[in-house]
């Protein structure tokens, strides 16, 4: 087990710089999830940690040792890929044992580790089958097994669940999280799915255009995003962002205002009756409703801008009708309209 430290890490392809000197410290045993849109540099960062991409500048340290010039095999890490990268011509047992190809363990110990990994991952009945006979989730478990048997200092996951369907993905999320709990190994995990980030991470690292925007525990990022991008990226559906201004400490929607107000759909509640004195009230015409079961999402139009609010499950407003929705003052995120940086919330 080990810490992973990124120190002013830079990656350039020719003149194009894709990672702009990022700093990060992954603590021993921590589960860190890199999240961001395509092309934000999260996969490149992970591949540099793995040693599959050269480092253009700065340092990577694993367990205190600078590994910039070390071959992947000397870094004592294991990686799980999006397309599993398990070999179709080998059985599950051979695939898992392939992780131990170069170790000097005796045959018995190798077998024991493979059997153990198989048991932990629920692959025991499939050990002598070929990958073609397995489902996507099982294949990904084989890939995890191959990583596990090496007992590495850190696991690297590169979008491991992106090829699975929604149901399997939800199940594998829980399994990987449980596995981390059990093994306690440092994990760096890359995904573009903010739900995976929220549900699995000890710490989320939000990246965009080769910069780290914010890094912190999931709820901290959810509650206090540092800018509009992070605010909209984390949480589903995305946070509503409206221009506005403050008058007497009260938020007022205003197309010319110098602020941006961010309100999560879950905090913007459709209701009749007078608003509390310091609450923000938005009124508009319903354009669409999405009943989800426990609640209903109501899309409505406020001065040409789409807003999503939440209504109780059985009180579904009609499309075309007018609704009002209210958000408490403490739930309104404020951003500078120019810089899009957060100004915090008034509590």
């Amino acid at each position: 087990m080990a810490t992973i430290t990124l120190d002013k890490l830079v990656k350039s392809y020719g003149k194009a710089r894709v990672i702009h000197g990022i700093d990060l410290e992954v603590r021993d045993g921590e589960f860190v999830v890199f999240v961001g849109p395509s092309g934000c540099g999260k996969s490149t960062t992970l591949r540099m940690i793995a040693g599959l991409e050269e480092v253009s500048g700065g340092e990577i340290r694993i367990g205190g040792n600078v590994v910039n010039e070390l071959d992947p095999k000397s870094r004592n890490i294991a990686m799980v890929f999006q397309n599993y990268a398990i070999y179709p011509h080998m059985t599950v047992r051979q695939n898992i044992a392939f992780g131990l190809y170069t170790t000097k363990l005796d045959k018995q110990e190798k077998n024991r580790r493979v059997e153990d990994a198989g048991r932990i991952l629920g692959l025991t009945p499939y050990l002598d089958r070929r990958p073609a006979a397995l489902s996507g989730g099982q294949r990904q478990r084989v890939a995890i097994g191959r990583a596990m048997v090496r007992e590495p200092a850190a696991f690297l996951f590169d979008e491991p669940l992106s090829n699975l369907d929604a149901q399997l993905r939800a199940q594998m999320r829980i399994e990987i999280k449980a596995l981390h709990h059990r093994l306690g190994t440092t994990i760096a995990y890359v995904t573009h799915d903010q739900v995976e980030a929220m549900t699995m991470a000890d710490r989320i690292v939000v990246m965009r255009d080769g910069h780290i925007l914010q890094s912190g525990p999931p709820m901290e990022i959810y509650d206090d995003p540092v800018d509009v991008f992070t605010a909209r990226f984390i949480g589903t559906p995305s946070m509503n962002i409206l221009p506005g201004r403050e008058a007497d400490g009260r938020a007022v929607a205003d197309g010319d205002g110098r602020l941006l107000f961010g309100i999560r759909p879950q905090d913007l509640l459709v209701r009749d009756g007078a608003a509390a004195a310091d609450a923000l009230e938005l009124t508009g015409t319903v354009t669409a409703v999405e009943p989800l079961g426990p609640e209903t999402l109501v899309h409505f139009d406020v001065a040409g801008q789409q807003v999503i609010a939440t209504a109780p499950a059985r009180a579904v407003p009609e499309v075309g009708s007018r609704v009002s929705a209210q958000a408490a003052r403490s739930e309104i995120h404020r951003f500078d309209r120019e810089t899009e940086r957060s100004l915090g919330r008034r509590r």
Partner: peptide, 8 residues
């Protein structure tokens, strides 16, 4: 890449 990481 997977094989390189496994040290093959």
């Amino acid at each position: 890449e997977a094989a390189r990481i496994d040290g093959v």
